[in-house]
Amino acid sequence: MAAGTISMPRIAILGGGIGGLAAAAFLNCQGFPATVYEQAPRLAEVGAGLVIAPNAGRRLRELGAFEYLRERAVRLGTGWEFRRWEDGRILSAENLETACLDLYGEHTYTAHRADLLAAIRSRVPADSVELGRKCVGLDRHGDAYRIHFADGASVEADIVIGADGVHSIVRGTIFGSAPATYSGTCAFRALVPADRAPDFARRPTQTLWIGPGHHLVHYPISAGEYVNLVAFAPAGDYTVESWTATATEREFLAEFDGWDRRLTDLIRAAGTPGRWALLDRAPLTRWSDGGVTLLGDAAHPMFPFFAQGAAQAIEDAAALARCLTADRDDPAAALRRYERLRIPRTTRLQAVSHSRSHINHLPDGPEQRARDAAFAAEDPLVANGWIYGYDLDDAVARG
């Protein structure tokens, strides 16, 4: 081994969300024990849904987590569709029943975030997760790193993975604190019990309603027990970035006044919605410094308009494990390779997710009509092949 390297590094993962647990699971599969330090007293995800696109589904199968998840996930058979805001006219539709499998070797699913977290957690050794461990600082300690927790305890690690989200302590320690900028957009979210949701919302379809300054997405999750609802609107002076903040039904309805009645009926069935501001963060050009690196939202927070946030965290985790396996005797070199491999792809996804808000929110007029015509002519499943067909092993081999 090269000077200063170690045969079995002590790996600390800060953050027990989807990305942090996926990192622990993939590393464990490669023979690298790792400890996850999570600040919360229990592992949980807020009540929200997500899309498991083929690129994420393939990684979950590789991990052995897919069978656990499949009982609760919903396979998008009738697919996805774009609808016009005022009358629900279908602008574009895609049947995913066979197309995803034929093109990308996997179906597309929707799931509750908690179900995905539990599926990944099932592949992590029980004794490798420590709860109630809030990181408040990180510093160099000889050839290793010392992690400091709010309760006064500390631990040492040779490799530190910051999977601690958009407000990452690790990112702030490595690169300094760069304030987020105001995007001018906020999101509303809610879960609608299936027995209160209209029939059209219970179909195994991801439906996007688009209109001036706003759009709304809904799809079933939790084996069809709920309909996940997330909507985007101008934020005004609202700047709270928290998954626990709430709005009122009246505020939610006011944003979609005049939209198709079916949609406003769905909003009424949702009860009290959550609300959070979308803050903007510029892509990083580096994720790693020595034996410290970033993963998931800590590395590349992105607007949710391509539904790839969780998928990219899972890809990060799989890529990191492969890079450490390939450069087992030189972890710092492995982390540099990992960031070279991942930054171009995640930066591109950050950019297209950012631009999508403009496309979805066009006011009625010539540009909107041109967009609708393009939607009708385009096959988005094929057009986004660079996302869904991503070959991680080929990328690692070339990187």
Rank of each mutant, 00 (worst) to 15 (best):
I161S: 01
E378W: 08
A334M: 07
A233Q: 03
E106R: 09
L96G: 04
N28D: 13
A397N: 04
D257L: 06
G162K: 09
T248A: 06
R113H: 09
F256G: 06
Y37G: 06
P283R: 11
A397G: 03
F256H: 04
A270D: 05
A370I: 15
G64S: 07
Y219L: 10
R262A: 10
N95R: 11
A73E: 04
G20L: 08
T78H: 10
P273D: 06
D297P: 01
H112C: 02
A333C: 06
R140H: 10
S7I: 10
E339I: 07
L294R: 00
I210K: 00
D139E: 14
G31F: 09
V292Q: 06
Y338F: 15
V170L: 05
A245R: 02
F175N: 02
G399C: 12
I11P: 02
D127A: 15
A233M: 05
W209V: 15
Y37Q: 06
E97G: 01
L263M: 10
S122K: 09
A153D: 12
E97W: 09
R202I: 13
A233I: 11
A23K: 01
E81R: 14
Y390F: 15
V166Q: 06
S122N: 01
C186W: 02
V124Y: 10
P9Y: 12
T78I: 14
E367N: 03
L131K: 08
R123K: 15
L191E: 02
L43P: 00
S183K: 12
G236M: 07
D391V: 14
T35W: 05
A313P: 00
P212S: 14
A126K: 03
A254W: 02
G165E: 13
L101P: 02
R322T: 09
G291V: 11
I147R: 03
G47L: 04
P363K: 12
E45D: 12
R336G: 08
S242F: 08
H148Q: 02
L229C: 03
P212K: 13
D379R: 12
A298D: 03
D127H: 13
R342V: 15
Q39L: 07
L14S: 07
A374Y: 08
L335G: 05
L96T: 15
R89K: 12
R146T: 05
A111R: 03
A180V: 09
D393S: 13
P41Y: 10
Q308P: 00
R337E: 00
I387W: 00
A374S: 10
S242G: 07
R345F: 08
V129G: 01
I359P: 01
G16W: 00
A194C: 08
R70Q: 14
V230C: 12
W85E: 01
V124S: 10
L96P: 00
A313E: 11
L21V: 12
R59G: 07
I147A: 07
P366H: 11
A223P: 00
A178M: 04
I13F: 03
L381M: 14
A2W: 04
H361K: 09
A144I: 13
G258H: 10
V155H: 07
F252A: 09
R203A: 14
T185W: 07
I169T: 15
A197D: 02
A277L: 06
T272E: 07
D151V: 15
S353R: 11
L50F: 05
A24D: 05
A235E: 07
P344C: 13
R196L: 13
V136P: 01
G137V: 14
Y104K: 04
